[in-house]
Amino acid sequence: MTSAMLTSSALYLAQGALVTIGLSLGIIAVATVAGMLLALLRLYGWRPLGLLAAAYGLVARGVPLLVLLIGSYFSLPYLGLDMPLWLVVVLIGGLYFAAYAAEVFRAALAAVPRTQWDAGRALGMRRFQLFTIVILPQARRLSLPPFLNVALVAVKNTSLVSAIGGWELVAAGREIGERTMEILPAYLAVAAFYFVICFSISQIGRHVEKKMRYV
């Protein structure tokens, strides 16, 4: 390989990495909001809704994301919904990882001692106030590392979009690898790009975690 080819391959991978970052951020945002809603429903919601949320969590987590993506992207036209690919990926990926995030949030919220609720109520705090000021900050401590796990898995799962006509980092690497029939160096380069993306995300997580540590 000449150096010009290496440069152009690196640029090509960098373009793929940008797509990966964009899709990942979208998916993580949807997963966080929807996951919190699901966790709240399961813990404090009206019981039938809570059971529904639990059932959703079981099914969404149990089915491979590839199947969900292919199933939804190629079936939506039948329902008259022709959404652009990135939107389908962000929504379906987000709702899928919401099921995982919900488990993390649920575990963390349930671990906050009930006495904290009692104490807050005794101080005359409203439920919402109590939740946001007292409970949530404590739950965050337990939820952050496993939430980071989910986020990193989400980043790496964006590679599945190539099955439905999407293009991102792994697809770019595979294209370079198949062109040269040398897949291993291409994949190692892909891994290096992933490392940069995921390491940045986990450093942000670590930083937040340090701020919340017990002193």
């Binding site: 291993l184 994949y187 891994a191 995921c198």
Partner: peptide, 19 residues
């Protein structure tokens, strides 16, 4: 943790099997 978590399983499995 950083190396294992921040790189794709696909690449790790390729390195172990082919490398």
């Amino acid at each position: 943790v950083e190396i294992m978590r921040n790189t794709p399983i696909l690449v790790q499995i390729f390195v172990l099997y082919f490398g």
